[in-house]
Design a protein around this nucleic acid. Structure first.
Length: 284
DNA sequence: GCCCAGGAGTGTG
DNA sequence: CACACTCATGGG
């Protein structure tokens, strides 16, 4: 069954293949297959809308996709608000179609805990292995992201062998210390309390806590600072220092839409690095 | 083979 | 609070 829903502006490729989320595959050109909830979906975008190919007739997948892609975010308004920052305004138009995704909270927490000190291809592989091994099979041949209960039944040794390495103990720790109800109750927390709660978890530091707040719990004021953002803040704003210090700077400067600002800075910095690399190789 | 990855925990000054 | 060091593996 194919559904269609209007989402604009949107750049599907930019949104699904930029390291926010790790399970989407471009099986055909412009055609993205992934799992949202218990459905395997294939998304394709046209001018102002997205077509959803799902192996179900349940039209609730439309609502799921709109929530996942944050279709109701007023990107124009967000960009106007951020445009007060003259540094940010330059690259922003290029990324108009980039949307922050709204992943499942548990999937997001595990994914970003695994993402520490690993590159993106490897992160994808770890998650793929966990899903194949422990996730519920769903129509279409894919697997849902494994539940807390099912993942908690796996031993640390078993998880290590899934290629997780030293991260295995963090995953078993998460399964032991959390329940579905607890995850649910965390959705009611405001960002500062949520971030503190996430920081209590073993294997979750400042950066992961902010990623999970942003991409899992939808807190747009969260501003994850990785190595690229750290470089961007130093290069463009001449701020340096601890995570706390950089967070406070971002919060004052970008406010309630810090999450979107972070994505723009991230892309801007990576493309700047790429241009530098090209320029360097031309000189040689 | 070598380098290093969208970091976090631990120990030390 | 600021550093330094280690962590287990696999992609590029």
């Amino acid at each position: 069954m194919i559904f269609k829903t209007e989402i604009s502006p949107l750049d599907l490729t930019l949104t699904l293949d930029c390291g926010q989320t790790f399970r989407w595959k471009e099986l055909e050109r412009g055609s993205w297959t992934g799992i949202v909830g218990k459905y395997q979906l294939t998304l394709r975008q046209s001018a102002r809308s997205v077509s959803i190919n799902a192996s179900t007739e349940d039209n609730s997948v439309v609502r799921l996709v709109r929530e996942y892609l944050r279709a109701d975010d007023d990107v124009a308004r967000i960009q106007r608000a951020l445009a007060k920052d003259e540094v940010l305004v330059r690259g922003m138009k290029e990324y108009r179609g980039l949307r922050i995704v709204k992943m499942d909270e548990w999937e997001c927490l595990v994914s970003y805990t695994l993402a520490t000190y690993a590159n993106i291809p490897r992160i994808k592989k770890m998650i793929d292995t966990l899903c194949t091994k422990y996730g519920e099979p769903i129509p279409g041949g894919a697997h849902a992201f494994p539940t807390i209960k099912r993942l908690g039944e796996a031993s640390e040794k078993e998880l290590e062998r899934c290629g997780l390495g030293y991260r295995a103990k963090y995953v078993t720790g998460l399964c032991d210390s959390l329940t579905p109800n607890e995850m649910k109750s965390m959705t009611r927390l405001e960002y500062p309390d949520l971030k503190e709660r996430l920081l209590e978890l073993d294997g979750v530091g400042e950066k992961v806590s902010d990623c999970v707040s942003l991409f899992g719990f939808g807190k747009l004021e969260a501003f994850p600072i990785d190595i690229w953002i750290e470089r961007a803040l130093g290069r463009l704003y001449h701020v340096k220092g601890s995570y706390r210090r950089l967070s406070e700077f971002a919060s004052e400067r970008f406010g309630e839409y810090s999450g979107y600002a972070q994505e723009y800075l991230y892309f801007n910095e990576r493309s700047a690095a790429q241009e530098d690399a090209c320029a360097f190789s031309e000189v040689r």
